[in-house]
Computed example of a mutant assay.
Amino acid sequence: MNNKKELKNILTPMQYKVTQEDGTEPPFENPLWDFFEDGLYVDIVSGEALFSSKDKFHSDCGWPSFMRTISEDAVTEKSDLTMGMRRTEVRSKQADSHLGHVFPDGPKPTGLRYCINSAAIRFIPKEEMEQEGYGKWLEKI
């Protein structure tokens, strides 16, 4: 695992702010909020698989939204009482990167909306998944 000093040299300032300082990027001003191609979304820090493009949907919130994680143990959830509201924070399991929040207002069948910062994830196109070592996830795309 990279330490904070190493991560500051590897990540962009926004990626660092979001993943390491629990920040939030501006809505509608990020590259993946309206991006819909087949592939896999992974943690920008650890590379762990998080979300499938099959579960991404357009939610009009300004951030990438998914109805479920790619596996049951992909993320951890924590209570978040900041910003004067009660929310559920979503963090990557391996790297403990702040990803975003999950809300109970998503589409069926899950009813969930994982609202994720683009700065916290990297998209891997379906046709590149095998060569990047993510072949085991192809059936989920």
Results as ranks from 00 to 15, higher is better:
Thr24Asn: 12
Asn3Ile: 03
Glu130Tyr: 03
Gly62Met: 06
Glu77Tyr: 13
Glu72Gly: 15
Val45Asn: 13
Phe35Met: 02
Ile141Ser: 12
Pro104Leu: 05
Thr69Val: 12
Lys5Asn: 13
Asn9Ile: 00
Gln131Cys: 02
Glu128Gly: 01
Lys78Gly: 00
Asn9Asp: 09
Pro27Asp: 09
Leu138Arg: 10
Asn30Ile: 09
Val90Phe: 09
Met129Ala: 14
Thr88Ser: 00
Arg87Ala: 08
Ile141Glu: 06
Pro31Lys: 12
Phe51Val: 02
Trp137His: 14
Ser92Phe: 09
Pro31Val: 04
Thr110Glu: 06
Ala74Tyr: 12
Gln20Trp: 14
Leu32Cys: 05
Pro27Leu: 09
Val90Trp: 07
His101Asn: 00
Gly111Ile: 11
Leu112Asp: 05
Val18Asp: 06
Ile44Gln: 00
Met67Thr: 02
Asp55Val: 03
His98Val: 01
Cys61Ile: 05
Glu128Leu: 15
Glu29Ala: 15
Pro31Ser: 08
Phe57Trp: 13
Pro109Ile: 11
Phe66Cys: 08
Tyr16Pro: 08
Ser97Trp: 10
Pro109Leu: 12
Met1Cys: 01
Glu21Thr: 07
Leu11Val: 03
Phe51Asn: 03
Gly39Ser: 13
Lys5Val: 06
Ser97Pro: 00
Glu127Ile: 09
Phe51Ala: 05
Ser97Gln: 05
Thr19Ile: 10
Gly47His: 04
Arg113Trp: 02
Gly100Arg: 01
Lys126Ser: 12
Met1Val: 07
Gln15Ala: 15
Ala119Cys: 04
Met14Thr: 10
Met129Ile: 11
Val42Pro: 04
Glu37Pro: 00
Leu7Ala: 11
Arg87His: 08
Trp33Ile: 03
Pro109Asp: 10
Gln94Glu: 12
Lys54Met: 05
Thr88Asp: 01
Met85Glu: 06
Ile124Pro: 02
His101Met: 02
Thr110Phe: 11
Leu32Ile: 00
Gly106Tyr: 02
Leu112Ile: 01
Met83Glu: 09
Phe123Asn: 00
Glu128Ser: 15
Gln131Leu: 04
Pro13Cys: 09
Tyr41Leu: 01
Asp60Tyr: 07
Phe103Trp: 01
Glu127Val: 11
Phe123Val: 01
Lys108Val: 02
Asp38Ile: 02
His58Cys: 03
Leu40Pro: 03
Asp80Cys: 10
Gly100Tyr: 02
Gly23Leu: 14
Glu48Ala: 11
His58Asp: 14
Asp60Phe: 13
Thr12Trp: 13
Asp34Cys: 06
Ser97Leu: 07
